[in-house]
Simulated assay, not measured.
Amino acid sequence: MPIPPYVVHLRSMVGRELLWMPGVTAVVLRESRDGADEVLLVRRSDNGQWTPVTGIVDPGEEPHVTATREVEEEACVVAEVERLVWVSTSDVVTHQNGDLAQYLDHTFRCRWVSGDPRPGDDESTDARWFPLDALPDMRQLFRDRIAVAVDNPADVVLGPLTSGASRA
């Protein structure tokens, strides 16, 4: 997985210690030819799991820009952000190399503009559309992010869904 240069620099100073980082999840939706709603998912190369497109916000980059950039880089799809739907904090993640990180995630509902999904870099081994009623096996956290984006609440969800999430 490519590590942003600024994270490489931070790691040179803090080693594998916990880093707090801003992140995004782009839930890209489209209507299929038969009228069913579909979501874009990628199969991660580091753990083989299916997820919506995720990424780290670069210094000075707006999170919504990160979302569309990551979709194009990872899945070769052009998407447009419709709205921010959820802001949450991840659990501490131990990456395969032992680095610890925790993310402030910004989940965006996005709409497909163009492109056929395929892996665009070495972060993914597959990219494709899935019907919302036939999602592959994935972590509940990502199912929750998809559900919030599909429900398209009028307000942003703040905090975890399981503890009576508040709406902004």
Rank of each mutant, 00 (worst) to 15 (best):
T54W: 09
A154M: 14
P117N: 09
P153C: 15
R33I: 02
V57Q: 11
V39L: 06
Q140C: 07
P119M: 00
V92E: 14
T162S: 15
D99R: 03
P136G: 06
V78T: 10
V65T: 10
V92Y: 14
V113M: 05
M138W: 08
A101W: 02
A79M: 04
R44S: 10
M138V: 01
T66F: 03
T162R: 15
A101I: 00
Q102W: 10
R145T: 02
R44C: 03
R109V: 02
G48A: 07
R145N: 10
P153W: 14
S163N: 15
D37S: 12
D116E: 12
T89N: 15
R83K: 15
T107Y: 06
A26S: 07
E123Y: 04
S163T: 14
F108N: 05
T162K: 09
T54L: 05
R139L: 05
C110V: 01
E72K: 11
P59S: 14
V39S: 06
D34F: 00
R43Q: 15
W86S: 14
F130M: 04
A147W: 11
L100T: 08
D122K: 08
T125L: 01
D144P: 05
Q102I: 13
T125Y: 01
A26T: 00
E61N: 08
E74T: 05
V39M: 04
V42M: 08
E123W: 10
L132F: 05
C110E: 07
E70T: 04
T125V: 10
A101Y: 05
P119F: 01
V39E: 11
L132V: 11
V65G: 11
A147P: 13
H95F: 12
C110S: 00
N97C: 04
E82P: 13
M138K: 09
P117S: 03
D133G: 09
R109L: 06
V93I: 12
G35H: 03
S45M: 08
R83N: 13
S114M: 01
P153F: 12
D137T: 07
V87Q: 15
N152W: 13
E38S: 08
Q96L: 05
E72Q: 09
V148Q: 15
D151R: 15
R128M: 07
E31H: 01
R118Y: 00
T54K: 09
H95L: 02
W50K: 13
G159W: 12
H95W: 10
A67I: 03
T68Y: 02
E72P: 03
S90F: 06
S163E: 14
S90P: 14
E73R: 15
G48V: 04
D34I: 00
V65P: 07
L135Y: 11
L104M: 02
R143L: 09
S32Q: 00
E62P: 11
H64E: 13
P131D: 08
T94R: 15
C76Y: 06
P160E: 14
I146A: 13
V81Q: 13
A36Q: 09
G35T: 02
E61W: 05
A147K: 14
S124C: 09
W112D: 06
N47Q: 09
R145Q: 15
I56N: 08
G120Q: 06
L161F: 11
P119S: 03
P131E: 04
E31S: 04
W129Y: 07
V27R: 07
V87F: 11
H64V: 02
L100S: 09
V113S: 03
G120H: 07
E62D: 13
E82H: 09
P136N: 04
L161K: 15
R118I: 00
A79Q: 04
V77F: 06
R69G: 08
Q96I: 02
